Amino acid sequence: MLTAVRVRSLAEIRLAAEALRDAVHGLAGLKVAVTDNIAAAEPMKDADGVILAGEVFGFSGEDSRWWRFPQLALTSPLPMACRFESEPFWCNAEGIRTRTPNALLAGLDLTNFRERALTSAAIVAPIHLPFGQIAAASFLSPDPAVDDLSAPFEAVGEALALLARIFVASYVKVTERRAASIARVMLTKREVECLRWAAAGKTNDEIAMIVNLKRTTIRFHIRSAAQKLDAVNRDQALFKAAQLGFLGTLR
């Protein structure tokens, strides 16, 4: 199974996705919904540009909303929980269960869970990748009324998470569009200064006052830094800058 779900080339994406689908069904009788980046709108595709969620993982019609409308990730408790947890968990309207307690998850809003998560229950595997990218795989019952996945979570939750991690991590490597020069990226002194103040919670207007520049100039420097860091938004730019050591103590 581990070998079958690993993607080694673009041509192997679909075969690996099918192997993941079949392995998850064989282990737990569940469907799998997977995204390589919860912050991006682009769905995962095979070498021919075919969207995997529909063609391979079987999401169509009403249950395809999770990938057709990526903005749902902004309100769904599933990707939100993935920002605070790195180990697999299972959840429903009654709560989020992890093997090791995580106080941060207790504060998440689970109201209208079914409508916001588009499922009654899910086993979720957060997948934290380099440069602040967060992927996630959700394992769902074919019966939308099932709201208890405690048994498959205890039995094979870790195995499901491992299979998903291998598939997603290898998919990201073979589809990588980030410039190879990211390892040598250099930010200007002004870009670093603006990012540091932004990381301290300052708005563009506040940063402009602090460094005596126009608001539009601050926005330009932050956007320029985000492009160099291949970040999809301001938060990811700050995260990547921190990972690469650009953000230190403000002096």
Rank of each mutant, 00 (worst) to 15 (best):
L129K: 07
P130D: 10
A73N: 13
T119I: 01
N37P: 00
W67F: 14
T98M: 08
A41I: 04
L74T: 14
A73P: 00
S150W: 01
A135W: 04
W66T: 06
A125C: 06
L72P: 00
M44S: 09
T75R: 12
A41R: 11
R116A: 12
L74P: 02
E94W: 03
I123F: 06
D143M: 08
E42G: 00
L105K: 11
D143A: 09
A39R: 14
S60I: 02
D48P: 00
M80L: 14
V50P: 00
D63T: 08
T35G: 08
F84H: 15
L129N: 06
P126L: 02
I96N: 02
S138Y: 00
R65I: 08
P79M: 07
G107H: 11
G95C: 13
A103D: 14
T100R: 15
L118P: 04
D48M: 02
C82R: 05
G61T: 00
S64N: 08
C91G: 04
T111P: 03
E94G: 11
F153R: 03
F139T: 05
A117G: 12
E62F: 00
P88Q: 08
A151S: 09
K45A: 14
G95P: 12
D63E: 08
S120I: 01
V146S: 02
I127M: 11
P88S: 10
I96G: 01
V124L: 08
P101Q: 02
D109I: 07
P88M: 09
N92L: 09
E62N: 01
